[in-house]
Design a protein around this nucleic acid. Structure first.
Length: 356
DNA sequence: GCGACAG
DNA sequence: ATCTTGTCGC
């Protein structure tokens, strides 16, 4: 079995080690102190022996060392021998419920009734006959982390009035996360806390319960997102997950928009390429569809405020079309990051500060 | 040339 | 994500 570890150094000098499979050999430059190196490596080897017991495709653990011989904290995945594939199975079970525009097209072809965005409200800016309700309450969720202990997090849910962009509801909870951050598997780390906050609000039948949710993280803009729409179960190891916004959206069954502050590289899309296109396409709206090498549209890049060159990345979460998602993001942007997400971010960080 | 990969 | 500095990006 081939394994590797990534070593970071935290502010207080602790070594943070991520041990994983399928990666490259550790580079020797990461251990620059020769005397420590021996101890350090032997400790790690013994941990490897304990933590990694399956053959391949296992993420074992994240271990934080205070010293080479002392472990401060370690995360392990919940099941005894979890594999990436276990996680994928969980998500596949909820993927079947995902409703996107594409699925609705498929439904209409089958002679079904649903041909529009799947919600009963409408945007204030859109004229429509009938007396349907107007989108008013927009939720936003985010997590902040303790600088001292990166397993301590504060998840926050806010609800904003769309017209005024003022916060009308706020709730948060501080938890210890069990699952490490793994690129592509963000949902497993962050979704549980956020779902709890949403469930709590729903169970109380709160009158500000959001009609739409904005999530700090991608939706279909994800290595496996494309396959949500078209495949029930694609057993390819490269595509093992999908975005946080989809994950949450399906589980709370709300229209959901994903907003990323950085691009998750997918299907040939890179930061530089997007920048290039955005510059070339001097569209007045500052929006660019993110079309990958395969021709699939994963989402959109948008320069949301005048001041910022750096775009945000919008993608579908659930029960909404990209067009509508973009429109809502634009309506909620006072600064680069849409207000619901920005407020959740600010307030969760604040709560964490005051709590410690 | 190294490494790319949301939070 | 978090730390901070400085000012851009391959």
């Amino acid at each position: 079995m081939k394994m590797s570890h990534l070593v970071h150094t935290s502010q207080d000098g602790c070594r943070i080690v991520e041990i994983m499979n399928n990666a490259k050999e550790p580079s020797s430059s990461e251990c620059n102190c020769p005397t420590e190196q021996m101890d350090w490596l032997s400790v790690q080897d013994s941990l490897k022996g304990q933590l990694i017991t399956e053959d391949v495709n296992i993420f074992a653990s994240v271990v934080i060392f205070e010293r080479p011989d002392r472990v401060r904290s370690a995360y392990t995945l919940p099941s005894p021998h979890p594999t990436w594939w276990d996680f994928a199975g969980v998500q596949d079970s909820i993927k079947g419920q995902l409703i996107t525009e594409d699925l609705r097209v498929q439904d209409s072809l089958k002679g079904q009734l649903i041909t529009e965005d799947d919600f009963k409200w409408r945007l204030p800016t859109r004229e429509k006959e009938g007396s349907c309700e107007i989108l008013k309450y927009v939720g936003g969720v985010d997590l902040s982390f303790s600088k001292d202990d990166s397993s301590i997090a504060c998840g926050t849910l806010v609800v904003l009035d769309l017209q005024t962009l003022k916060v009308v509801y706020e709730d948060s909870s501080i938890v210890r996360l069990q699952i490490p951050y793994i690129p592509g598997f963000l949902a497993f780390r962050e979704a549980p806390v956020l779902l709890e906050l949403l469930d709590k609000m729903k169970n109380n039948a709160h009158c500000f319960y959001p009609q739409l949710l904005m999530v700090d993280g991608n939706g279909l803009l994800h290595p496996r997102g494309k396959f949500c729409c078209y495949l029930k179960l694609e057993k390819r190891r490269e595509f093992l997950s999908f975005g946080l916004a989809c994950h949450i959206g399906v589980l709370v069954d709300l229209p959901t928009v994903g907003v990323g502050k950085n691009l998750h590289h997918v299907d040939g899309l890179t930061q530089s390429r997007v920048r290039e296109l955005l510059q070339a396409a001097d569209s007045p709206e500052n929006v660019l569809p993110l079309i990958g090498d395969s021709g699939y549209t994963w989402g959109a890049a948008m320069r949301s405020s005048q001041g910022s060159l750096k775009p945000i990345f919008i993608s579908l979460g659930h029960r909404i079309s990209l067009t509508t998602a973009i429109e809502i993001v634009r309506m909620t942007c006072r600064f680069r990051v849409p207000e619901p997400i920005r407020q959740a971010d600010i307030r969760s960080r604040e709560r964490l500060r005051n709590n410690q």
